[in-house]
């Protein structure tokens, strides 16, 4: 079994227009910048994919990574909890112009909807958002004297996730708080595509240390020196990078 692919272009080659794509990261921590940029390269070369529904905690920052994906016009809808950041100009401009749809989800509900999608649980109840605008139109129920809101699972066609170590079977570790949504997004996607700083032989990662077991991962590509969103933004970078 070898899930490793030779390059980023191959890793993202099959993502179709109209796909639901979960993208890991919380701000810049865990953002799979190189996979996103490879998808933008494919779009500029072929016109696809577009009309994507993207699931991420935020809405991108500056003009790289997720913000660049939105700026390229590839995203029709964003499902997220906090579409603000230090510099969310790309999303804000498109949203206020009516050029991108937004589904706002409380952060814990977002994580749990994704986890439920990966765990085969079509709906669950939570007190989060009960009595607020974000619960409008959703079924409610009382359990043990308390009111709860029904939330549906969230699944994806693809997940783009950044890991620290991977092996060819797809076992993953993460680095510090870059873990965030990676493990649940790998579970909830039909095809989880992972960029890892290093791909090591099977057996190298201690089974006790595996965070995401390989059953949840379909593709692995090595990106030895991943860019960090904060560093790119501090340098004023925009993607595609000026020639």
């Amino acid at each position: 079994m070898d899930k490793q692919v030779p390059n980023l272009a191959t890793a993202v080659a099959e993502i179709e227009s109209g796909s639901v794509v979960m993208i890991g990261g919380f701000g810049g921590a865990g953002a799979p910048i190189e996979l996103i940029h490879a998808l933008i390269d494919r779009f500029h070369a072929t016109g696809a994919p577009k009309d994507l529904t993207v699931v991420n905690n935020n809405a991108g920052n500056g003009h790289v990574g997720l913000a660049a994906l939105i700026e390229a016009g590839m995203v029709a809808k964003l499902i997220c909890s906090f579409p603000r950041s230090a510099d969310p100009v790309v999303f804000t401009t498109k949203y206020l112009a009516g050029e991108i749809a937004l589904e706002l989800v409380p952060q814990g509900t977002l994580a749990e909807r994704i986890r439920a999608g990966g765990a085969g649980i079509p709906a669950f109840y939570t007190p989060t958002s009960f009595g607020t605008d974000l619960a409008k139109g959703k079924p409610t129920a009382m359990f043990d004297g308390r009111e709860y809101v029904q939330e549906r699972w969230l699944k994806a066609d693809y997940a783009l996730v950044k890991a620290e170590l991977a092996d060819p079977q797809g076992n993953l570790t993460y680095r510090a708080a870059a873990r965030n949504f990676g493990p649940v997004m790998c579970m909830a996607a039909r095809v989880a595509i992972v960029q890892a700083r290093q791909v090591v032989p099977a057996g190298t990662i201690d089974p006790e240390a595996v965070v995401t077991p390989g059953i949840f991962v379909q593709r692995v590509v090595e990106v030895p020196h991943p860019a960090q969103e904060e560093d790119l933004n501090r340098a004023g970078a925009a993607y595609p990078l000026e020639a």
């Binding site: 906090f82 579409p83 952060q107």
Partner: peptide, 14 residues
């Protein structure tokens, strides 16, 4: 403007 909720709605019930 742009609405943003983050984790606040989860924290208040947890």
């Amino acid at each position: 403007g742009v609405p943003a909720v983050g984790g606040a709605m989860d924290l208040v019930h947890g």
